[in-house]
Amino acid sequence: MRIRATVAAVTGALALSAFAVPAAQADGPAITREDTAKVLDAAHAASGKTGARAAAADAPYALDASISNVKVNGGKAIVAGTTKHVTVPTTFTLTHAADVDIKAADFLVDVEIYKGSYTEPDNYLFGDLWPTCKVVTTTTASCTGSIDVYPGEGELRNSDAGAWSANAYAIAFNGEDPEAVDFDVTKVGVVEQAKVGSTKVQRYSKLTVNASPEPVKKGKTITVTGALTRANWETNKYAGYTVQSVKLQFKKKGTSTYVDVKTVKSGTKGALKTTVKAAADGYFRYNFAGTTTTPAVKAAGDFVDVN
């Protein structure tokens, strides 16, 4: 099981990757994310960058490569519920010197996302597997990867919802085994880039509606109730999203478009309630536009027969 990256336990953006699963390599040493964190820490310490956990007498060399055109989830927000594992794609371009062997088993490249400060993030998310790159030219490659989210395993707190940034790095181990006693970090090449992209991580939302009585006489009062809830990542349950503006909409029978009727504020436990006069057969629904932390959601229409 993956463990939530707790800043109190580990500092430094890439150092948080130490909690990840091992990196499966076809050949060469079995390099883990903890190994990559060790190399990145050494690079941080040598450059004087904050976030390094210890001073480094030796440091990796600057790898002649860069990462660009980063997209996380195709530009869409990452939406996570209470328990379901979520995997979202990442794509990026790797540009490198002609003498950098990106097909080597111990050449690693990745795009990950973090919440808050780059050097002291509030949280960090990464993929279970390393990205793969397809050679385009002798100096460029098109890469695809993923970011995996396990909300049911304590990876997220409610305060994590909102804007996140992406960072990228590439490491060429060049045959050096990071677990060996004679590991020489100076023979390892590293390039690391912060804020190469952005995304949002949002709490999955639900919206219900019920219009009654059914049927109802024309001109009589219809009461429309419902509830707006969203994922609570700390309890793994859904909780009411209060004090939010939600539109009540109506679609007349025989038409295809919903029209706004009024705006209702969600109350205790996300409860919604309002009244309207019965005018014609049709469907009522609630429509929530969403916020930075919570995605938009529409309730399924509830039909009312007016006679």
Rank of each mutant, 00 (worst) to 15 (best):
E234F: 08
A166P: 00
F284H: 09
G175C: 03
A231L: 00
S266M: 02
A9Q: 15
V216H: 15
S159L: 11
N158H: 02
A239V: 00
A97Q: 12
V10T: 13
T140E: 02
G254F: 13
S146G: 03
T257R: 08
V276P: 06
E176D: 01
E214I: 14
A80N: 05
T138D: 14
G48I: 05
K262F: 05
V39Q: 09
V261Y: 02
G81Q: 01
H96I: 01
V136D: 12
P215R: 13
D148K: 08
T82Q: 11
A30T: 13
S17G: 12
D281Y: 11
V264F: 00
S266I: 00
R33W: 14
G226H: 08
D122G: 10
Y150H: 04
V181Q: 14
A163H: 11
T225L: 13
A97V: 03
S47P: 03
Q25C: 12
F288K: 00
I147N: 00
P89M: 10
S66V: 10
V10M: 13
E112H: 13
E153T: 08
D41N: 15
V10I: 14
S165H: 04
V246C: 03
D281H: 10
T294I: 12
V86M: 01
L63A: 02
D122V: 11
D99V: 05
G267C: 02
A194S: 10
G51W: 01
D260K: 14
K103D: 15
P178G: 06
T6K: 15
F19D: 12
G226S: 05
N158W: 01
A42D: 08
G282S: 11
T223V: 14
D35H: 05
I78R: 07
M1E: 05
E153D: 08
Y150Q: 02
